[in-house]
């Protein structure tokens, strides 16, 4: 992804030549979480720590907590709903972002 600035975004004269990326892995700065219209809500009472959501998440934004449960990082979650579809315990529900 194109380089970003902490405050505001780069002007045309500040862009790296050819818009090259010179900092490996800087896609981590890119907030894909604002693409979603629905967000996954995890009910840890139902979760049996099976890891399926972790493996199925195409964004790779679900991580293991210290207690061994799994939770998404909503900064990156695009709201695709695959985790909710795959969860065998119906512990994940998709809720509207709006409202």
């Amino acid at each position: 992804m194109a380089k970003t600035k902490d405050k505001g975004e780069l002007g045309w004269q500040e862009i790296e030549i050819g818009c090259f990326i010179t900092e490996p892995g800087n896609a981590i700065q890119f907030r894909t979480g604002d693409w979603k219209s629905r967000r996954p809500v995890f009910d840890l009472d139902k979760c049996n720590k099976c890891t399926l959501c972790y493996y199925f998440c195409p964004e790779g934004c679900i991580a293991k907590t210290e207690e061994g449960y799994f939770l998404p990082d909503l900064y990156y979650c695009k709201g695709c709903g695959i985790c909710a579809e795959e969860c065998p315990k119906d512990a994940i529900t998709m809720e509207e972002e709006a409202g």
């Binding site: 002007g11 862009i15 818009c19």
Partner: peptide, 22 residues
């Protein structure tokens, strides 16, 4: 390492193209 020609979201594409024209 550098990455060339990677993805540019709407927030930067306009600036990149203007820079190219200039």
């Amino acid at each position: 390492p550098v990455t060339m020609g990677a993805f540019a979201p709407p927030f930067i594409y306009t600036e990149v193209k203007y820079a190219q024209d200039q």
